[in-house]
Design a protein around this nucleic acid. Structure first.
Length: 664
RNA sequence: GCCUCGAUAGUUUAGUCUGGCAGAACCCUAGUUUCAUGAGCUAGUGAUCGCCGGUUCAAAUCCGGCUCGAGGCACCA
């Protein structure tokens, strides 16, 4: 059996752990656990990067010394990684003594070998920011924050001869000896190498950045990021006396922001010190949150701890690994997570275990003996395919393949009507199903370690290798059913279960109306009272609607607008004022609101999808209306993939909005 | 501006390397079932595979052009 060394980046401790660091760590954990199943010797390293100016500043801001500060945050990372069930073999911190000593040794070696030399760090300095700017901070040569021209400043620094390694690195990457995946990332690095490598500074003056490792050959400087942080992959092994056994890394996972540093500086440092290069760098994608970029200003970053508390670590792990094709950018959405938890974990897997165990307990109280395997079911499992998906780092496809088999098991129970079977046939069928569940439990264990353990508990078995994923291994089952594996989460859109009647589009009567008058609601800050003319549909008078538009529209902008009204909505009283209908609008998650409008249509005309349907419609309740999913697309409204329209035009939004929002 | 990658059903996607009936899941609709978690199973609706052209008996797949989107173009951990 081989060895397998996998690393995550070490995470910078200037902020709390977020879902991005959890994602990388979970992916690495899955690969580590899969390799342990295959009986490879595994070392899985993660940790925190704790030096540098930003940490120094963050600590000052909190009025504590940097050491206290990094201890606090590092602890948070450890807790967070325990919550997501990471099985790392070492959690390295760059403030560990051993790490600092090791880095000093390497710096001295590089200095002695003349890979490090004294020179100048030269860059633009913004007086307003009180710091050096990077080229990406510059807009038209000016500081993007202060809009001033920065001055070119020089300070003494030590430089690393990165330029020397350009050709060698290019060759190693082109030959595939040093592998970078996915392909576009490799291209990116190659094209960057083509533009030429410059030497880089690896130190800062100690008077400016004191929170760092001192250069062994010059006490006025501290080591600047690269050598310090990157070397963790080596000291992380050396701390545990495992370097000789595990070097080099088989896979180093990271997000794309640090790819270049790894592909150039990190590998050059290894070449300079005559260490082997990692076999593969794998670059995974970025997240969007509900379709929006994750950013501090939007305040939409997601705490993995919260997700674990809400849904459990396995659900989070499953969602991240299943929903996002590994290596591509993906979207994180809580409602999608719940959907997958309910459908795939609870319904498909959880229910399968539950129904099979109940049947076993009912019929084989004193144990179920080994019997013939029904090939009809066992032949549907393709473990080689699952393994090759994982070896190719297609984790989402591996899960897909496992679930295909889970569905086959459910289908088998139905088609064979196991609950009607008797005697030897029943014995054989249930034995096949129990073996299937046992094998499934092995296969999902890298992804869902907790769930896998709970399934084994119920089966009263324990398997820890892929070799055991074979039918016919267990001589006798004495199962013990316990609680459900996954509790389902009620999504908000599902209203009370008693109200099983789901409404159809035909149940709502949508009409074009014109806003004739607007008053402030006497008893509410956000509400308008709007009088709407529905033309011939309600010829004798206008109807009165209370609507929460006040924060979004001025009165003069609304007056005369032709809008869409739910005309048959049950009347209600909102803060003391009667409202007999509602107007349709779309709201995104940033509080932008847009009206559904139909400027060319006749007042009182019907809005419909297929053809106008003039039959009398009953009043509907608000909840019934809410169960109808009208969604946005290209600034129009769709129901069941068909556009909402009147006889004159398609209904459109008066402001641009993203697709797939639900009308409310 | 230069370079790289991507675009498949309302949504998430498989298939593209190596051309051969465009597969799946969610949602929606209908039916069926009672062993099981308001679960399961069956069926149906829904895709001119971003657009235009070329090669070919045959193109989602190969080639050329275009549109849109994402990313890279160094000291930011």
């Amino acid at each position: 059996m081989g060895k397998f060394y996998i690393t995550t980046p070490i995470y910078y401790v200037n902020s709390d752990p977020h879902v991005g660091s959890a994602y990388t760590t979970i992916a690495a954990d899955v690969l580590a656990r899969w390799n342990r199943l295959k009986k490879n010797d595994v070392f899985f390293l993660t940790g925190t990067d704790e030096h540098g100016q930003k940490v120094q500043e963050a600590a000052e801001k909190e009025g504590i010394n940097p050491k206290e500060f990094v201890d606090k945050i590092a602890k948070k990372f450890k807790i967070s990684f325990n919550l997501i069930n990471s099985s790392h073999d070492n959690f390295i911190r760059t403030t560990n003594k051993e790490h600092e000593e090791e880095v000093k040794k390497i710096l001295q070696e590089l200095f002695d070998k003349k890979f490090i030399y004294k020179g100048n760090y030269e860059a633009y300095y913004c007086v307003g920011c009180e710091q050096y700017l990077t080229e990406s901070d510059l807009v038209d040569g000016k500081c993007h924050i202060h809009r001033t021209k920065p001055e070119l400043r020089k300070e003494e620094a030590y430089l690393f001869k990165l330029s020397k390694f350009q050709d060698k690195l290019t060759k190693l990457i082109e030959s595939g000896e040093f592998n970078i995946l996915p392909l576009e990332r490799r291209n990116e690095v190659l094209s960057f190498l083509k533009t030429g490598l410059r030497d880089i500074s690896i130190s800062r003056l100690k008077e400016k950045v004191h929170w760092g490792i001192e250069l062994p050959f010059d006490k006025n400087h501290t080591c600047f990021v690269w050598v310090d942080a990157l070397w963790n992959y080596i000291t992380g092994l050396k701390e545990k006396k495992q370097f000789d056994k595990f070097w080099p890394p088989d896979i180093q996972l990271m997000a794309k922001d640090i790819l270049r540093v790894h592909a150039t500086i990190w590998s050059a440092l290894l070449l300079a010190t005559e260490n082997k290069l990692p076999k593969t760098l794998f670059i995974h994608g970025y997240f969007t949150i509900d379709g929006h970029k994750m950013s501090k200003s939007l305040g939409n970053s997601i705490s993995p701890n919260y997700m674990v508390e809400q849904y459990g670590s396995d659900a989070l792990r499953y969602f991240l690994m299943r929903n996002i094709p590994f290596g591509q950018d993906g979207d994180f959405s809580e409602s999608l997570l719940v959907e997958r938890l309910n459908n795939e974990l609870a319904n498909d897997l959880g229910n399968l275990v539950s129904r099979v165990l109940t049947l076993t307990e009912k019929n084989f109280e004193n144990g179920l003996k080994k019997s013939e395997i029904d090939k009809k079911l066992s032949s549907k499992l393709d473990i080689k395919k699952i393994d090759s998906h994982i070896e190719n780092l297609e984790l989402h496809n591996a899960l897909n393949e496992i679930w295909r088999f889970i569905n086959e098991c459910n289908k088998y129970v139905n088609e064979e009507k196991i609950w009607e079977s008797k005697g030897e046939q029943l014995n054989s069928q249930l034995y096949t199903l129990l073996e299937s569940i046992r094998i499934i439990s092995i296969l999902v264990s890298p992804f869902l370690p907790q769930t896998s353990g709970r399934i084994f508990n119920q089966l009263q078995q324990n398997c820890e290798s892929l070799e055991e994923a074979n039918f016919g291994l267990i001589e006798e089952y004495k199962v013990k059913k316990s609680d459900v594996l996954f509790k389902k989460i009620e999504q908000e859109k599902d209203t009370k279960p008693t109200q099983k009647k789901t409404s159809k589009f035909e149940d709502i009567d949508l009409r074009v109306g014109e806003i004739k008058a607007i008053k402030d609601h006497p008893n509410a800050d956000k509400l308008y009272i709007i009088l709407v003319d529905l033309g011939k549909y309600n010829a004798d008078k206008t109807i009165q609607i209370v609507s929460g538009l006040k924060l979004h529209y001025k009165k003069e902008d609304l007056l005369g607008q032709k809008i869409i009204i739910v005309a048959n909505l049950e009347n209600s009283v909102i803060r003391g004022v009667e409202s007999s209908g509602m107007l349709l609008a779309i709201e995104d998650n940033k509080n932008n609101l847009s009206l559904l409008t139909a400027s060319k249509s006749i007042l009182g005309s019907k809005a419909y999808i297929d053809k106008p349907d003039e039959k009398a419609v009953n009043e509907i309740k608000f909840n019934e209306f809410k169960s109808i999913r009208l969604i946005t697309k290209n600034n129009k409204i769709y129901y069941n993939q068909k556009p909402l329209k009147t006889d004159k035009e398609d209904i459109f939004l008066d402001k641009e909005m993203p697709d797939n929002l639900i009308v409310e």
